[in-house]
Design a binder for these strands. Structure first.
Lengths: 339, 339
DNA sequence: ATGAAAGCGCTAACAT
DNA sequence: ATGTTAGCGCTTTCAT
């Protein structure tokens, strides 16, 4: 059996209350006993039973994060941002992966609520907020939606100014003198559409036209993004009127497109400039350093963390909060004249 | 306040015992009341308090996994492997990141033990088992070390046959006819040394010599692996007697080396064959598809999961268990004559 | 088939 | 400065 408060108490001829008080740093304990207790606690390697204290206090000083998967860099950065913020406030973060499955996500929510997590962060896969609405009894546990917000939810939300992502990249290339800017657009999702809108707006503002054959649809989903990027470039180069600027929905697609262009003898950035999205350190350092829009995942995580801490603080303050973080451009060789 | 068993009981004029029994599937309940209870439970969206039941039963049906970081693909695959196995047995997996910090790892262990996780998996950063030895009182919680084993531990361990990783890659290139096989070796760690030994053994077995200037040391750690791969290739090509085969400690280094070689006009695989380690889907599909040693992380995770389940089953069976999974070669264009 | 009592390990509130 | 009592929500055991 594990060591309990009671054991330490018996060991030192004290009551378990005294031990408990020492462990929680209460001040009405003499320095002498305090030292004695701490010494024995260390020796016996006592680890408190969080189930028990949670049952009594109603809190675990633990927060849960549910991610679609734990292998993606941007998700890991969100996690790191949250972790930094909440651990500074004395909370531990535990992560669950929904393995890209919306039903599994719901199970994870129940597990974390069941575990008495003090707050939840979810990068959700739910289309709508139906699941969350039906459990209003769960309102004790604040939930912060990160990056994606199920339609209808009136919960806290921290997301990305997606339209600006597309705008920043397109505006940059336009200001750099590109006249025909192609866009390897993302999926037909809310995010994909917003970024495409930003791209179009930037072009219009610069007096350019987002000609429809400059926008390449996301192709066969059975292929990886790198290959999709290459194939998109094939299409662009096979037509008359090749672009002098290319923006891709992801860094990997951008790298694929750049590789294909290079292979066909296009000089980068002299003849064609490129920008990606995600600012992936790995991809952006390869070959021709890639200009990319930094989505700001770490910041996203920090804001989400702060929001949860606030929600726990004033339980009465349940006004829905929404924050959008602003993306930032990282300029590199792929879009700048070599000096 | 959250819904409790008591609330449902009062609601239906039953005792909380009855509700509890229904929820745990005990059979001594009439079908009628069972249905009534389940209906109300669903309506009220009851979520059990795991702290309370854990306190009573001593188990949480939860296991913890501690990773150095959650952004790495191979760690994510280990996690997925564990998850698959333990969730099939009714356990939930919760993940904590130690953020590459050995002290933080210790804190995570304490948190998960405190949370009453039924078993722990650790991809550990500890050099020695000192921390784990000093908490024998914690032995109630089985710990499975994955991938890396702190010196001295007598716990369960599932790792990789690292020597074979180096051997497989080198043997493959040797059998393909390469006579001068270079090795961009990893760090001076246990793993790095084992793989280097495997490389040397394979060469010897094929009657080749692991000439010292064919083994390139890991260079400046402030640079990313891609750049290190490129720079290693620069060095190899600047000497007389260029290699006709190159093995790299990671896929990313291999890609860097291949890029640099291509840039300098070396034809791959005709003039130089390449193999990496890790079988990273992203990196292995780029440009020249890269032959790579699949470390078998998913398998690693599954074995670890099974080991933990066994440890929970027979609490008496505390014989230290060790398993090494075998890596596998994935052949691709970088090492095969184009057909 | 249903329920009452006791207690898991801890702490809030109140003695002493 | 230290200790006593009660109870958090659940389940084990034993009655009914």
């Amino acid at each position: 059996m594990r060591v309990r408060l009671k054991d330490i108490a018996a060991d030192l001829n004290l009551s378990k209350m005294t031990i408990s008080k020492v462990l929680r740093g209460q001040t009405d304990i003499s320095e002498a006993t305090k030292a004695r207790v701490l010494k024995r606690v260390k020796e016996l390697n006592y680890i408190p039973n969080l189930s028990a204290s949670s049952l009594r206090t109603g809190e675990t000083k633990t927060m849960g994060l549910i991610l679609p998967s734990i292998g993606k860099r941007w998700l890991a950065e969100i996690a790191a941002g949250i972790n930094r913020t909440v651990s500074a406030a004395g909370y531990s973060l535990i992560v669950c992966s929904s393995e890209e499955d919306a039903e599994s996500e719901q199970r994870q929510v129940e597990i974390l609520v069941s575990l008495q997590a003090d707050a939840l962060f979810i990068v959700s896969l739910q289309e709508t907020s139906a699941f969350f609405d039906q459990m209003p009894k769960m309102r004790t546990t604040p939930i912060v939606f990160v990056s994606h917000m199920p339609a209808g939810t009136v919960e806290s939300y921290v997301g990305v100014h997606e339209e600006l992502v597309g705008w920043i990249a397109a505006d940059h290339l336009a200001k750099s003198g590109c006249k025909r800017i192609a866009y390897l657009r993302g999926p037909r999702t809310a995010v994909g559409d917003l970024r495409a809108n930003g791209y179009r707006r930037a072009l219009n503002e610069s007096g350019l036209v987002a000609h429809s054959d400059l926008v390449i649809e996301t192709m066969s989903f059975d292929k990886d993004e790198y290959t999709r990027g290459r194939e998109a470039m094939e299409r662009l180069l096979s037509r008359r009127g090749r672009p002098d600027g290319v923006i891709a929905y992801t860094d990997l697609m951008a790298v694929g497109a750049m590789d294909e262009a290079s292979r066909r003898g296009v000089r980068i950035p002299e003849e064609m400039r490129f920008a990606g999205c995600g600012d992936d350190a790995l991809l952006c350092q390869m070959r021709i350093p890639l200009t990319s829009v930094d989505i700001g995942e770490h910041d996203l995580g920090q804001r989400a963390g702060r929001m949860a801490l606030r929600a726990i603080g004033n339980s009465k303050d349940k006004g829905a909060q929404r924050v959008l973080v602003k993306p930032r451009l990282e300029r590199r060789t792929s879009s700048e004249k070599a000096r």
